[in-house]
Design a binder for these strands. Structure first.
Length: 713
DNA sequence: GATCCTCGAGTTCA
DNA sequence: CTCGAGGATC
């Protein structure tokens, strides 16, 4: 924020009215941005002192020219996120992502998988739709009684951002629909054409504004404007290709449903075509690939979907992707650049990860200067099973390497040009000791990663553990992000070396020579806010605490299972210590949890058996008020005391979730159907268990009926 | 024992 | 987003 430097400011008293107008606009923008940075990110972009100074200046000018006060004046904003951007909208039907195919074989496999799942032979007819995959950003439009009521971005698939006002500014999105279902969510892609993109960028240049790297960035930037008038001035368009919630089905096939959307007034892609079998799909893919440069908009692949909607329903979903669709991606853009150095990073679990430092190069519209090298074998040109990658060529410092962005995101090294290898380049020697703490770095038999054995002695591991501790699914303390934790770790006075230290920070600050509020970038208010935010988190649910401990193999999902099983800290703590011998009732009980195996159990109990680590855990727990997870009353639950078996694919919950939920309701969950079974919940793909249940006269219901039964529909 | 699926851990850049 | 690996299922 260059312009925010105090030295460049003119004294308010000297400025003209014109200058005041410009200055108020500028201050309002800077302060709004600072607010966003402060609340939304780990590191404030300007110090508290600068912030206060700018705000004072704003007030002074407003007092001098009251009539120039802006409607969005910073003085009118009371604390809190001034514009946390957009409100949130929960999608009634989740917005999923797609699985990927990278070559023709993947497409053949996709078809084979579906046929197997549906019980079709190779010769049975199975139609797919194939359409270009637009490279923009997805948007969900909700219409009620034919009126556009809201528009939301994909977000994390569950909750998106409310961009209704902006969506209404997009020319080819209808605001009203004639003859549509009472509820209709239309999904599609917002994009910008090449011509419009070029025109926008030259206009930006003339106006002295920054230009966009590519049409997708331009489209994303234009849709996520707080001022809809800016969106209006940007040439955005929308292709419809799917739907979410619906009051009645649009058609019986994908193709007909899309045609219906076209008839309702949405732009649909003319290159959508019915294909029978993998060879026709691939043929259409090649056609689209040839047409690609002349389409006038960016696409990054071709999407295949099972055409028959009944079959789509039968195929259902995996956790984040539908089984009935796949995206066949075009080869990623490649670029050659020099690999300047290989550096080693140490992660929370001690994993040594090699990273390539590259001479900056543009790949797919983004400047890349780092790339992941995964592990020791990857550098050598070996894959996990001892096979070869890059034709077995190893990577050396100084090499000319070809990089691409996997999934258009993560930079990787695709190839090495041996003819350009500098003379004297030697094979990379992977360190055998931790570069941060010099402890031995050991690679377990059969493991791909080498790990630092320093444990808590290793500063890198300690810092990464702390970063994990304050991360989103864990303690998530406002104003204490990864950056701050690292600073505090190294601070001589306010040292935060383990989680418990966070909670003693306020008390220790009171004793410190230089109090936090007197330091650079801090002030009275921000220091107090931080201490308050920390105190607010003392009361915390058990599952978050377990996750925050950062025990290897125990992530968010396992923490939820454990918390539900043990219900409160005292019981969990006791069980972990009793199970330390890795035998006996407590150990068996731990392993009986669906989703917990021997490896995870051993990792867990070790953390509680190891003296220093356990002491650190106790110091933390002492500072907290850990909430037991709610265990719904079991009395009167419709499944209390019953034995339930799940089989087939569950679509709305994982098997582990289903089991935990059923147990919470007092049911016993078993793995096989027997005479004692009361109920079988069968998803698609159920096999022998369903047959056996029928033989034994056990009641069989599907997932939806189950959810309705337990009142979770 | 093979195979499918999900989770955990690590990674980049705007 | 992707890889590796743990866990469940057949």
């Amino acid at each position: 924020m260059e312009q925010a430097r105090k030295g460049e400011l003119i004294e308010p008293a000297d400025i003209s009215e014109e200058q005041a107008i410009a200055e108020l606009a500028r201050l309002s923008a800077i302060l709004a941005q600072a607010n966003l940075d402060y609340h939304g990110k780990d590191t404030p972009t300007i110090s508290d002192a600068d912030y206060d100074e700018l705000k004072r200046r704003n007030t002074a000018i407003e007092e001098q020219f009251p009539h120039l006060k802006r409607p969005d004046s910073p003085t009118e904003q009371v604390g809190g996120p001034l514009a946390d951007g957009f409100s949130k909208i929960r999608h009634e039907v989740r917005m999923l992502s797609l699985g990927n195919a990278f070559d023709d074989d993947d497409v053949v496999e996709f078809d084979a998988r579906i046929r197997k799942y549906l019980g079709l032979s190779e010769t049975d007819r199975l139609a797919y739709t194939a359409e270009p995959k637009i490279d923009g950003l997805s948007l969900s439009l909700r219409y009620e009684q034919g009126q556009l009521v809201h528009a939301a971005t994909r977000g994390d698939g569950e909750v998106g951002e409310n961009v209704t006002a902006n969506a209404k500014m997009i020319g080819n999105i209808p605001q009203t629909l004639a003859d549509a279902p009472e509820v209709l969510e239309v999904r599609g892609e917002v994009y910008m054409s090449h011509a419009d993109f070029a025109a926008l960028n030259s206009a930006q240049e003339v106006a002295g504004a920054k230009s966009f790297a590519n049409p997708r960035n331009a489209a994303a930037g234009s849709l996520r404007q707080l001022d809809p008038n800016i969106t209006k001035s940007r040439p955005l368009a929308f292709f419809a290709y799917a739907w979410g919630a619906l009051s009645y089905p649009l058609a019986e096939t994908q193709m007909a449903a899309i045609a219906r959307l076209g008839a309702l007034g949405f732009q649909i892609n003319p290159l959508t075509k019915i294909c029978n079998g993998p060879s026709e799909l691939v043929a259409h893919y090649k056609e689209i690939e040839i047409a690609r440069p002349d389409l006038g908009y960016d696409i990054d692949g071709v999407v295949y979907k099972v055409d028959d909607l009944t079959l789509q329903r039968r195929l259902g979903f995996r956790s984040t992707t539908p089984r009935w669709a796949i995206a066949h991606k075009f080869a990623a853009e490649l670029a050659w650049t020099r690999l300047e150095a290989i550096e080693i990073q140490v992660g929370r679990t001690g994993a040594l990860s090699p990273v390539a430092r590259l001479a900056p190069v543009t790949v797919g519209g983004v400047v890349v200067s780092n790339a992941t090298l995964h592990n020791e074998d990857y550098i050598k040109g070996l894959d996990s099973k001892g096979g070869e990658i890059r034709g077995g060529k190893d990577i050396r410092e100084g090499d000319l390497v070809q990089v691409y962005r996997a999934g258009d995101v993560i930079p990787k090294v695709a190839d090495v040009d041996l003819s350009q290898r500098p003379e004297g380049a030697v094979p990379y020697v992977f360190p055998q000791t931790c570069p941060e703490c010099d402890s031995a770095a050991i690679r377990e038999e059969g493991d791909a990663v080498r790990r630092c054995t320093g444990g808590l002695i290793c500063p890198a591991q300690a810092v990464e553990k702390l970063k994990h501790f304050v991360s989103r699914g864990a303690f998530d303390i406002d104003g204490l992000g990864a950056k701050q934790v690292e600073v505090f770790y190294h601070d001589d006075q306010l040292k935060i070396r383990e989680p418990a230290d966070i909670f003693t920070l306020r008390a220790r600050d009171a004793q410190a020579l230089t109090k936090l509020k007197n330091r650079d970038g801090w002030g009275e208010t921000s220091a107090r806010n931080l201490f308050d935010a920390i105190d607010e988190r003392r009361k915390i649910p058990l599952n978050r605490v377990i996750f925050a401990l950062g025990i290897r193999h125990v992530g968010e999902s396992a923490s939820n299972l454990l918390a539900r099983h043990y219900n409160n800290w005292a019981d969990f703590d006791l069980a972990m210590r009793e199970a330390a011998s890795q035998e006996g009732a407590a150990w068996d009980d731990l392993l009986s949890i669906d989703g917990v195996g021997a490896v995870m159990a051993a990792s867990l109990t070790q953390a509680f058996a190891q003296e220093a680590e356990y002491a650190s855990i106790l110091r933390l727990v002492q500072e907290l008020d850990i909430e037991a997870v709610e265990r719904p009353a079991q009395d009167g639950s419709p499944v209390a005391g019953q034995t339930v078996v799940f089989t087939g694919t569950l679509e709305k919950m994982t098997r582990a979730e289903a089991k935990a939920r059923a147990e919470a309701l007092g049911a016993k969950v078993s793995g096989s159907v027997s005479a004692k079974t009361n109920l079988l919940v069968a998803g698609p793909g159920a096999g022998s268990k369903a047959t056996k249940a029928a033989d034994l006269g056990v009641k069989v219901i599907d997932e939806d009926e189950w959810l309705a039964l337990i009142g979770d529909a």
